[in-house]
Every structure is written in C-alpha cells, then in structure tokens.
Simulated scan of single mutants.
Amino acid sequence: MLDAALRLFTEHGYLGVRVEDIAKEAGVSRATFYKHFTEREQVLAELFERLLGAEAGPEPVLASPGSGSTEQQVTVLIEDAVRRMVGQEQLARFVYSLPVRHSALLRPGAHSVPPVFAHVSTLLERGVVRGEIRHDVPLPLLTRQVLDALETAMRDWAEEHVQDPLDHVRVMLGLTFGGVTPR
C-alpha cells in the first residue's frame, strides 16, 4: 500500500489522492486499508519513516569520540543520510516537496525518532563535552539547527533549486557551524 500511495502522491500530489485511490491502486478494499492505517496522514508518516528510518539502509556507525572534530563527524553522518535518501529519489523528492515541516510527520510510538536525528544529537552532545560546540545553547536547539540544514538542502534539491544535494548540504552545514560572518 505504501508503494501504491507513493506512486499516486507523486503523480497527483498529496492533496489529490484519497484513501479510496490508494486502496484501489494497491488492489485492496478500503476496509483492508483501514486495518493498516487509520488515515492518509499515517501513510505519509510511514513514507517519511521509510526515507529516514532503518529501511533507508544500514545505520551509520558513529565514529569514536577522538576521530575528527564534531563538525567533521556530523558532516559525514549527514552526507551519509543524504546519499541514502537520494538512493530513494522518488520518495525523497516527494517528501521534501511537501509544504510541511518534517518534524510534524514524526509519530510518537513505534519508530519514534529516525536514527540520524538521534545520532546528530549524540555527536553534538559529545562536542559540547569536548568544548567544540557551544554549551550555552540547549542541545535540542543545536540538534534542530543541524537538522534544519539537512531539511533545507533536501528541500532545495527536491524543488530543483540545486543539482547536487551533497554539495548543498555541505554549504548549509558550513553556515550552521560557522555562521555567515567571516572567521
């Protein structure tokens, strides 16, 4: 059903697809659809989890605390996430072209937070302890800033404002870590 929904969402847009359309495309009844999902938004949340979750490929192994700066480690982690998402191009372009903040798609419960989000937070926390990252800003805000850079880069790519999402995410992370004023 998720694959059928993605095909329809890609072809007709999220708002142009009804539950009935998804069920028909998947070859199931509406009742069967409702056995798996309570609403169309749940399908969207599952697609988002597919993009950023374990199904996107093997989870990255966090580098040991002494292997590179926090900025380097976070950049490697985010670049890996971008590569995995681009490997699911149709899904990535669909999700990042939606006019919603992706944190709104995270459902409490079963899958909780995508692994890349948790890994970014862990790396930043290590960076705070090592004195490489500001300690006067709450960790959730630091984490959100990095994830906003990822989301912005992916959205710009999905909307075809940039060709290479990896180059773009590097620029966005550079702004996140270095700011906009010369060092």
Rank of each mutant, 00 (worst) to 15 (best):
M1G: 06
D3T: 11
A5L: 06
A5G: 08
L8I: 00
F9D: 01
T10V: 07
E11F: 01
Y14S: 07
G16S: 09
G16E: 06
R18M: 02
D21L: 00
E25G: 08
E25C: 00
A26E: 02
A26P: 02
R30V: 02
A31I: 10
F33C: 01
Y34G: 03
K35C: 06
H36K: 13
T38L: 08
T38Y: 09
E39C: 14
R40N: 03
V43L: 00
L44P: 00
A45V: 09
L47T: 06
F48Y: 13
L51V: 12
L51A: 07
G53A: 05
G53R: 05
G53C: 09
A54C: 07
G57W: 05
E59S: 10
E59T: 07
V61L: 14
V61Q: 14
V61S: 12
L62Y: 05
A63Q: 14
A63N: 11
A63S: 14
G66Y: 11
S67C: 11
G68T: 10
G68A: 08
S69Y: 02
S69H: 00
S69W: 00
E71A: 09
Q72S: 13
Q72A: 15
L77R: 08
L77M: 02
E79G: 12
D80Q: 10
D80R: 12
D80S: 13
A81S: 14
V82Y: 02
V82E: 11
R83H: 10
R84I: 04
M85L: 13
G87C: 11
G87E: 08
Q88P: 05
Q90T: 15
Q90G: 11
Q90M: 15
A92E: 02
V95R: 04
Y96A: 05
Y96R: 09
Y96G: 00
P99S: 08
V100I: 11
H102L: 11
L105C: 09
L106R: 07
L106N: 06
L106F: 08
L106V: 15
R107A: 04
R107P: 00
R107F: 01
P108I: 13
A110V: 13
S112M: 13
S112G: 14
S112W: 15
V116C: 07
F117D: 06
F117A: 12
F117W: 06
H119A: 14
L123C: 00
R126W: 10
G127K: 03
G127P: 01
G127E: 04
V128Q: 15
R130M: 07
G131T: 10
E132H: 09
I133R: 00
H135W: 10
D136L: 06
D136T: 10
L139F: 04
L142E: 03
T143D: 06
R144D: 13
Q145N: 09
Q145I: 05
V146H: 01
L147Y: 13
A149E: 08
L150E: 12
L150G: 11
A153I: 05
A153L: 03
A153D: 09
M154R: 04
M154K: 10
M154V: 12
D156R: 15
W157F: 04
W157E: 04
W157D: 05
E159I: 03
E159V: 11
E159A: 11
E160N: 13
Q163M: 12
P165S: 10
P165Q: 04
D167L: 14
R170I: 03
R170G: 02
M172G: 09
M172P: 04
M172Y: 05
L173W: 03
G174W: 00
G174V: 07
L175E: 14
T176W: 06
F177G: 00
G178Q: 04
G178W: 03
T181R: 13
P182R: 15
